[in-house]
Design a protein around this nucleic acid. Sequence first.
DNA 1: TGTCGGAAACAACCAACCGTTGTACCCATA
DNA 2: TATGGGTACAACGGTTGGTTGTTTCCGACA
Lengths: 311, 311
Amino acid sequence: MDLDTVRTFVAAADAGQFQEAAAELAVTQQAVSKRIAALERNLGVRLFTRTPRGAELTIDGQAFLPHARELLRVAERAVASVRTGRRPLRVDMLASRSAASGLMRGFHRAHPEIELDVVMLFDIETALAAIRSGAIDASFRAVAVPGRPLPEDIESVRVLDEALQLLTGPAHALAGARSVTVAQLAGHRIWMPGIVPGTEWAAYYDDLVAEFGLTIEATGPNFGSDALLDTIADTPALATFMGEQTRLVWPADHGLRRIPVTDPTPVYPHSLLWHRDNPHPALATLRAHLAAAAAGHDAAGTWAPGWVIPR
Amino acid sequence: MDLDTVRTFVAAADAGQFQEAAAELAVTQQAVSKRIAALERNLGVRLFTRTPRGAELTIDGQAFLPHARELLRVAERAVASVRTGRRPLRVDMLASRSAASGLMRGFHRAHPEIELDVVMLFDIETALAAIRSGAIDASFRAVAVPGRPLPEDIESVRVLDEALQLLTGPAHALAGARSVTVAQLAGHRIWMPGIVPGTEWAAYYDDLVAEFGLTIEATGPNFGSDALLDTIADTPALATFMGEQTRLVWPADHGLRRIPVTDPTPVYPHSLLWHRDNPHPALATLRAHLAAAAAGHDAAGTWAPGWVIPR
DNA sequence: TGTCGGAAACAACCAACCGTTGTACCCATA
DNA sequence: TATGGGTACAACGGTTGGTTGTTTCCGACA
């Protein structure tokens, strides 16, 4: 199916006749007639009843019309998403189920008129390059990597500290606990496949291990979160970390337990990063929204690496 | 833009290389390469970075990808809307802002998995023909026309009685009233352009006029509800009727007043009609939903023509 | 009743596009 | 350095899609 054809259908439906639609689209009446005929042939139904005074929609045509309009709207948004200048606000985040995603959902609820695009870049180095090149407008990341301060033209603000929770299967030794201390985790195997050395989140877990003497294994290929949860649920000796705001997609949770960690609570710090000179109007709105949403969180009893941006 | 091209883009993005995408789509690698190049030329941005081991998305490509997927989803729904056999439930109603629309929104909230299409046919005669031909599955109408009983193969159930309200501008004589009786309306000019003689809703208002001695004018062309509201707001001598569930799209209501009518309250009876032998599974679900939603309404103090289907 | 006018469909032609085959190029790896 | 897997470029042919020219249909009106 061709979107020009769909556009032609909508124009003809609105005009009530092919000739006027043809004039609007700057083609001949015969071209419109052929396009509509081809569309009808593809769909296998008649969309218009031809009359001597024009063409009016059949019931099938009426049913198809709103879908056709929607198709054109979506196509326009798709084109706009890559239009240079005045394109939707483009934000990078760690993963689609991270806490940043919740923040962006909240922002979208508060400002539904602002068009958004979400991309997921590899790590903070890539994100910084993309911000400086203008390819993205903002990034949710745990700034920065140890010993490497942010460039001067990048600004940032810490917007959310997300507590880590322990995720275990029902047969795990800690499965019955209401909460566990970090000290209790020493000696237990914590499995986090997919950690890529050199990224800022790998640095976070390295720091966590070094600080509290934990055992985190990143061995084995990462088959995705479904496979991870599957293994955790079935393996009594394994547990994993998960952000408190991560929503599991899991049939009835499969007996998985989420256990808060205390003394201290490790938190993953999400900061918003953007370029000092980025003129996108929606960026200011986003910053204002996040500043309001971030206010009033309590940092007492939590832990984060010393190299992240302070609150 | 061509949807085959979009499909090719999504396949290439998923596969991470053009060759595998080409195999999936049963075309040659060169065809995929050309399609992607053409798409990039149209959009004016590079979507993939070509590497010796395949092709990976640029940031623009990442931003475009979800829109492309959405485009394919919408296209599939569009095609499904006219597919014979197992197509979405197709329902006819009076107008997009009628009470039936509210009922269908409620049904959609309760059963978001059921695909719906709404069409707006001319009158109940057209609707009955469409139901019998299978072109639509159900219709919200005020059955029937006086003196013409429903055909035997059409079933119906009264699902909602919608009270009529008087709509006036701020300078109308009744604008200050908390409610008005039908008797008080005698002598006032009620303006309802767009009433088409011969339709079942024209018959309804004919009956209303005959029963209570009202003055309803249907003169003048119907320029749409915006123009109607505009005139009502500015003309002290004119008022109109409007269903209580009709949502006005009006900047700050422009001083318009909605006044309940009593002694008795005229109600517009909405019934659901369907064909006895229609096998669409969603139709049974809709009937069950509406039966539950319709229960417990009070008919005391209301008026409807004698020829409609009884409750 | 016959004619006129507006609108869509049909036919023939031409150009542009699209997919194919064949080939060159690039780069990681052995 | 050779090889293999991947992409881009070039040339060719068939199909598609748009245009012009013409026919058909039907309502309005004399």
